[in-house]
Each structure stands twice: as C-alpha cells, then as structure tokens.
Design a protein around this nucleic acid. Sequence first.
DNA 1: ACGCTATTGTAGCCAAGGCTACATGGAGGT
DNA 2: ACCTCCATGTAGCCTTGGCTACAATAGCGT
Lengths: 150, 150
Amino acid sequence: MPGAKRSRTTNSGPRWALASQAERFRSARAAHADETAEDYAEAIADLIAREGSARVTALAACLGVSHVTVIRALARLSRGGLVVVMPYKGVALTRAGRALAARAKHRHGVVLAFLRALGVPARVAETDAEGLEHHVSPATLRAMERFVKR
Amino acid sequence: MPGAKRSRTTNSGPRWALASQAERFRSARAAHADETAEDYAEAIADLIAREGSARVTALAACLGVSHVTVIRALARLSRGGLVVVMPYKGVALTRAGRALAARAKHRHGVVLAFLRALGVPARVAETDAEGLEHHVSPATLRAMERFVKR
DNA sequence: ACGCTATTGTAGCCAAGGCTACATGGAGGT
DNA sequence: ACCTCCATGTAGCCTTGGCTACAATAGCGT
Ligand SMILES: [Mn+2]
Ligand SMILES: [Mn+2]
Ligand SMILES: [Mn+2]
Ligand SMILES: [Mn+2]
C-alpha cells in the first residue's frame, strides 16, 4: 500500500536534519534583527562623511522611509548605545556605533565588489548587495575577498 | 572656516545617489516580505517529499518556531492562495504554492552549490544560504549558476 | 467504549517596523 | 521682532512574526 504507514515517531531522513535546519532559520532571523542597526550605522557614517552631519530627514530620504520611522529606530539604537541624537543638529555615532558602521561598510563593499567580479551588472549588484550583506558570515566574507583578489 | 556653511539645499555628492539608495533599501524590504512564503513553501514541499505529509508540528520543528507561529503563518499563506490546510491531516500546496516551492528550492540549491564552489565550508554555506537566497535576483542567480558550472 | 496523548486551535501578550495626521520647535529672511 | 517654513516629535493605527498558557479534538491502544 502506498504511503506505507510508519509508526508515529518514525521519520525517514537523517535524525539531525530537522534540528539543524531549524538552526539555519534561527540564524537568518538573527541576521534580520541586526539588519536595521547595520544599515542605519552605515548610512549615518556616510551622511556625516558626505554632508558633515546626519539629519533625521536626510536619513529618511536615504533609507526610503518616513521620518517617523527613523525617529523610532534612532530611539532604539540610542537605547542600545550606538547613536546619540542631538535634536535639530544631527545624529552622532558612539564608539560602538562607529565600529559597527565600519564593519558594515567594509562587508558591504566586499559583497558589492564580489558581485561585480562575478559579472553581475552594476545596478543589480548594488540592489542585491543591500540585502545580501546581512547574511554573509565571516567565513563567506573571506571567501568573497579571496575571489575578488583573483 | 571648517565645515564651510553650505546653503541649506546644497549637498555635495551626485544628485541621484539618495533616491536610488532608497530604492535599494526598498528592494531588500520587499525581499523580506516574500521570505516567509518562500521558506514555508519549500519546507512544506520537502516534508511532503520526505515524509508523505506536512503537519503543523513537523513544520514548527523544522522552522524552529512554535506551532502557534506556524498556524498563523499558514492562515496568511492560505488567504494568499498558496496552501490548503487540512486540520489533523496536513498542509497541501496549491498550484501557485508548488510553483513558488519549486522556484525557492531551485534558487536555494543554486546558492548553496555556489557557496560550496566558492570554498565555503558546508555547515557555514548551509546557514548563509538560508538567508542569502531571498536576496538573490535572477541576474545574480544566473551568474552563480555560470560560476558553479566553471 | 473510552481514555490518553499528541496535535491543533485560541487568547492574549510583546517588539519591530511600517504608515498618516497632527503638534511643536528653530532659525533664516524680511 | 516676527513670520514662515522646514525639521522634529507625538499619537495612534496596522501587519508581521515571535511567544506562553490554556482549550479542544482526533485517533490510537487498550
Ligand atoms: Mn549596507
Ligand atoms: Mn543592507
Ligand atoms: Mn534578509
Ligand atoms: Mn530561507
């Protein structure tokens, strides 16, 4: 008979498969939790470098969200000790914030250069890099760097 | 004087930079919106293939979330016409659901094979692929396939 | 036939990340 | 000095995606 009835606890595949698959999903969810902080830190550092200051409105335009969304995100990052908000003056990065921005910027650059080296068109590479970067582990990042340097 | 005061509308960098950066962030957010559907479709198809049915409990174990989370996600996917839930029997994929699962599974496979080919250790590759897959555009996917086939 | 146990479902909580509409504040230009 | 405009902040709403605790039910084994 088809779908031969197996006792309720039996399951064909390898015993470790399910648990470690769950771990993979957990990792992806954890990456998403860090994503906002990374993107904000990088955007703030860029704005300060390019315009001398990072204003809430500029951040909103840059990230493609409303200023309200930025204000609330900054409040969270501030509680987390990554930024200092100076109303009507701009947002500054703390030491930890600058460190995060530097790591994010570096990784972003590597991922982008990697995609370009792979032969992905510039515009597409730029778009994909913005999402991919947050899921690139240190080991994969090293592999990408190796590849970029031929 | 340092930080030479620029008129309020001036901004150094290229004029198009901000808007298109916003577009990149919007794309990444859009990818996240599809992520749950893709992962669920793929997991359901896998469970059906491996065990003959996809039960809520099995999905929860597989995805690393509580059964409540699965039930609610399935309700949304059901409203979206991707799955049909048959209580105490299992979850079935609709035609659209099967198509999504097939695309997701293929892309996942390519991303994983690509990382392996790049020299990323198996465990790390499996973990990274779970998050990366959702941000790989068709153009990048093709580039990865090309690379895997040397 | 009946009870146990595992599966499924509900209620209600939380945080994040979006939004619009409206309120307040700063600062430049007149 | 003051007006006006823009930047900032608040109130309140929504959806997604987590969770725990508890309720209901299917179906197996006795
Ligand atoms: Mn980035
Ligand atoms: Mn990003
Ligand atoms: Mn992602
Ligand atoms: Mn995935």
